[in-house]
Simulated scan of single mutants.
Amino acid sequence: MRVLLVEDDDDLSTRIAAALRAENFVVDIAKNGEDALHAGVEELFDAAVLDLGLPKIDGVAVLKGWREKGRSLPVLVLTAREGWPDKVASFKAGADDFVTKPFRIEELVLRLRALVRRSAGHASSHIVCGGLQFDVQLGSFELDGLPLKLTALEWRVLSCLMLRAENVVDRAELIERVYDRNAEVDSNSIEVIVARLRKKIGAQFIETVRGRGYMLTSQVSS
Score class of each variant (00 low, 15 high):
residue 2 R to G: 07
residue 2 R to S: 11
residue 3 V to I: 15
residue 6 V to W: 06
residue 6 V to C: 07
residue 8 D to A: 04
residue 8 D to P: 11
residue 8 D to W: 10
residue 9 D to R: 01
residue 11 D to P: 00
residue 12 L to Y: 01
residue 15 R to Q: 12
residue 16 I to V: 14
residue 17 A to N: 02
residue 20 L to P: 09
residue 20 L to S: 06
residue 20 L to G: 06
residue 24 N to V: 00
residue 25 F to S: 04
residue 26 V to N: 06
residue 30 A to R: 10
residue 33 G to L: 02
residue 34 E to W: 13
residue 38 H to E: 11
residue 38 H to I: 13
residue 39 A to P: 00
residue 43 E to N: 13
residue 44 L to E: 08
residue 47 A to F: 12
residue 49 V to Q: 03
residue 52 L to H: 03
residue 53 G to M: 14
residue 56 K to W: 00
residue 57 I to K: 13
residue 65 G to K: 04
residue 72 S to C: 07
residue 72 S to N: 11
residue 73 L to S: 06
residue 75 V to R: 06
residue 75 V to L: 08
residue 82 E to P: 01
residue 86 D to W: 08
residue 86 D to Y: 08
residue 87 K to G: 10
residue 88 V to Y: 03
residue 89 A to K: 14
residue 90 S to W: 06
residue 90 S to P: 08
residue 91 F to Y: 09
residue 92 K to S: 06
residue 94 G to R: 13
residue 94 G to H: 13
residue 97 D to M: 05
residue 101 K to H: 05
residue 101 K to I: 04
residue 101 K to D: 01
residue 102 P to W: 08
residue 106 E to F: 04
residue 107 E to V: 10
residue 109 V to Y: 00
residue 109 V to E: 00
residue 110 L to M: 10
residue 111 R to Y: 01
residue 115 L to V: 09
residue 116 V to M: 14
residue 117 R to F: 03
residue 117 R to Y: 02
residue 119 S to Q: 09
residue 120 A to E: 07
residue 121 G to E: 11
residue 122 H to G: 06
residue 122 H to P: 11
residue 125 S to R: 13
residue 128 V to H: 08
residue 129 C to Q: 04
residue 129 C to T: 13
residue 130 G to N: 07
residue 130 G to M: 09
residue 131 G to A: 04
residue 135 D to Y: 05
residue 138 L to Q: 12
residue 140 S to R: 15
residue 140 S to Y: 14
residue 141 F to G: 02
residue 141 F to T: 01
residue 144 D to F: 12
residue 144 D to H: 15
residue 146 L to Y: 12
residue 149 K to D: 05
residue 150 L to R: 01
residue 151 T to A: 08
residue 152 A to W: 00
residue 154 E to T: 13
residue 154 E to P: 11
residue 156 R to K: 12
residue 157 V to S: 04
residue 157 V to Y: 07
residue 161 L to M: 09
residue 161 L to N: 13
residue 162 M to H: 12
residue 165 A to D: 03
residue 166 E to T: 05
residue 167 N to Q: 15
residue 170 D to A: 15
residue 171 R to C: 01
residue 173 E to M: 11
residue 174 L to E: 05
residue 176 E to W: 10
residue 177 R to H: 12
residue 180 D to Q: 03
residue 182 N to S: 12
residue 183 A to Y: 06
residue 184 E to A: 11
residue 184 E to R: 12
residue 186 D to C: 13
residue 187 S to E: 14
residue 190 I to N: 09
residue 191 E to D: 14
residue 192 V to K: 15
residue 199 K to I: 01
residue 200 K to R: 14
residue 208 T to Q: 09
residue 210 R to T: 14
residue 212 R to A: 12
residue 215 M to W: 09
residue 216 L to H: 11
